[in-house]
């Protein structure tokens, strides 16, 4: 019995072209190309390096949060309070700026408030064991409500100039790359590496697919969940710094509704809402598709509301498409 196995087992699956064509990332690349071509046709101003660089200001902050959200959704959690964390972090920075704090102090304040809010979510979810959707719906109202109570209906606008450059300045002059976009690219590269190349990344996928088996395999499931909430809060703090600096002010309705835009990007990026499946490159592509589509449409003066309708349709169609194609390939009825 101790001889070699009597079964012949290959190392890898045979690869087929259809599998590659139906990969979500392939579909997203097609979609991105379509968006670029479409925008070039509808507006002559779209393919301009300065305009494109300008466009990145509008999505980089959300994109940074989407990276953390990807990991949370991957392990079956979600954080609906990210936009409210921005409001609270921005308020804290605003109060400090009012009291005369400089850039060197404002940054740690923004990051700290973000991380603390994230830790609060994480504690309730991973320690107490409450469902993350319930907890973060609660903290969404709590954090923003707190900001509104303290701020009333005023705005804080006294930010130092050096601070404002963080949100408005460029890391490289040519090609023009803003700080926020550069930071997003660096973070995306780090997240891609960690999620897809390291043991930690593998553990996250295991947790998302079967948290019990993951725990039985020595993975500290709840500890990791806690730290992912802290991480996402921290990234919301980063976004708060960039956004506050960019618009140079703190208002109670700052970043209102961003949580849904972030989650839209994650889902369009192919992350399963049930957990356990998804890639960072997919989410990065989705961020570009959504950001560039919004930018192109706004260039030809399509109203914001219509843009949301169109993006909603895009999300539904692109998620339904591969399912429909697979059914057609298998000869099953589509509906």
């Amino acid at each position: 019995m101790s001889g070699p196995s009597r079964y012949d087992v290959a190392d890898r699956a045979p690869r087929t072209l259809i599998d590659f064509m139906l990969r979500w990332e392939t579909i997203l690349i097609g979609l991105l190309i379509a968006v670029v071509i479409g925008n070039t046709i509808i507006s002559p101003y779209f393919l301009d390096i300065y305009n494109l660089s300008d466009a990145t200001f509008n999505f980089s902050e959300k994109a940074i949060i989407a990276l953390g959200m990807t990991l949370l959704i991957l392990v079956r959690d979600i954080d609906l309070s990210v936009a409210a964390i921005i409001a609270l972090a921005s308020l804290a920075m605003g109060l400090a700026a009012d009291a005369g704090a400089g850039t060197g102090l404002l940054i740690p304040i923004g990051l700290g408030v973000g991380a603390i809010c994230g830790a609060f979510n994480g504690l309730l979810v991973a320690r107490i064991g409450l469902p993350s959707i319930v907890v973060t719906i609660g903290t969404m109202s709590l954090f923003r409500g707190l900001a509104q109570v303290i701020l009333g209906d005023q705005a804080i606008t006294k930010y130092p100039a050096a601070f404002q450059t963080l949100g408005q300045g460029y890391l490289i002059k040519w090609p023009p790359i803003p700080y926020s976009f550069a930071l997003f690219l660096v973070l995306a590269a780090i997240f891609t590496f960690v999620l897809h190349k390291t043991a930690f990344g593998r553990k996250l996928f295991a947790m998302g697919n079967n948290p019990i088996a993951a725990q039985f395999s020595g993975i500290p499931v709840n500890r990791i969940r806690f730290w992912l909430f802290v991480l996402t809060g921290l990234l919301a703090g980063v976004a708060a710094i960039l956004l506050t600096a960019r618009i140079g002010s703190t208002r109670p309705n700052i970043a209102l509704g961003w949580e849904l835009e972030v989650i839209t990007a994650v889902i369009l990026g192919g992350v399963s809402i049930a957990g356990g499946a998804g890639t960072i490159p997919g989410v990065v592509l989705a961020v570009f598709i959504l950001g560039l589509a919004t930018f192109g449409l706004s260039l030809v003066n399509v109203p914001g509301i219509v843009i949301s309708v169109l993006l909603g349709l895009l999300l539904i169609v692109s998620i339904a498409m591969p399912i429909v194609v697979r059914r057609l390939l298998k000869g099953k009825p589509v509906v």
């Binding site: 196995s5 087992v9 290959a10 890898r12």
Partner: peptide, 17 residues
């Protein structure tokens, strides 16, 4: 995987299955 899977005679098409 090859070593233990072979030793325990796991029957599969490939190790990524």
């Amino acid at each position: 995987t090859r070593k233990l899977g072979g030793r325990l005679s796991v029957k599969a098409a490939h190790w990524e299955q």
